[in-house]
Amino acid sequence: MSTAEITPPPKATPPKATPPKATPPKATPPKATPPKATPPKATPPEKIEPPVPAFEKSYIDQITNKFTDDVEVGYIKENRTRINVKKEKIIDVAKFIKDNTPFDHAESVTGVDFPEDKEIGLIYHLGSYTDSTYSKQVLALATRVPREENPNPGNDSTKLPSLRDMFYSVEFHEREIFEMLGVYFEGHPDNRRLLLPEDWADLPPLRKDFKNKGR
């Protein structure tokens, strides 16, 4: 896997500890027809960028204005936005989002393994139940954690503060990421196996080193 990654890496610098990846706005968003019932277009527009939706930009700006350096905008699409945060600041950003924006729960937490960058990415999807204007929006809060070759879950440098105090609903999701990827969450009261059997002694399964048998 060369340069084909999720958010394209910065053009020149090799990956450092945890700098958030700057996304040039030229990143090709997946071409999607809007989910409303408009007649399907024949060919999507090739070079014209779709305009940045205003409503989504408004609340993203709220966050980027407060945390200027540590937060970077991943993308702003219709109903889906993403910000990339350094792992030291994740607690503050999450607290800010919880208190000042209508996002009140975390829908799901995804863990992704990037062995070339030697990092593990974590994406929290946040949604809103209380405010009906925000009911379509999903904010993806992304961060990165360093990754080690021989993982020792709980005792190596793959640690991240837990967002459980802000968003209570991530409790079981974080447990699953602990067992599947080996990311230890500090402040989580219960880092234990959830889905894997009790006697699992192999690598955390969702890492790319762990190969599916026969494939």
Partner: peptide, 16 residues
Amino acid sequence: GQIGEVYRRVESGRGS
């Protein structure tokens, strides 16, 4: 698939 990510949700029999 093109490079990028998507997140779609649907209302199933149990929830989203």
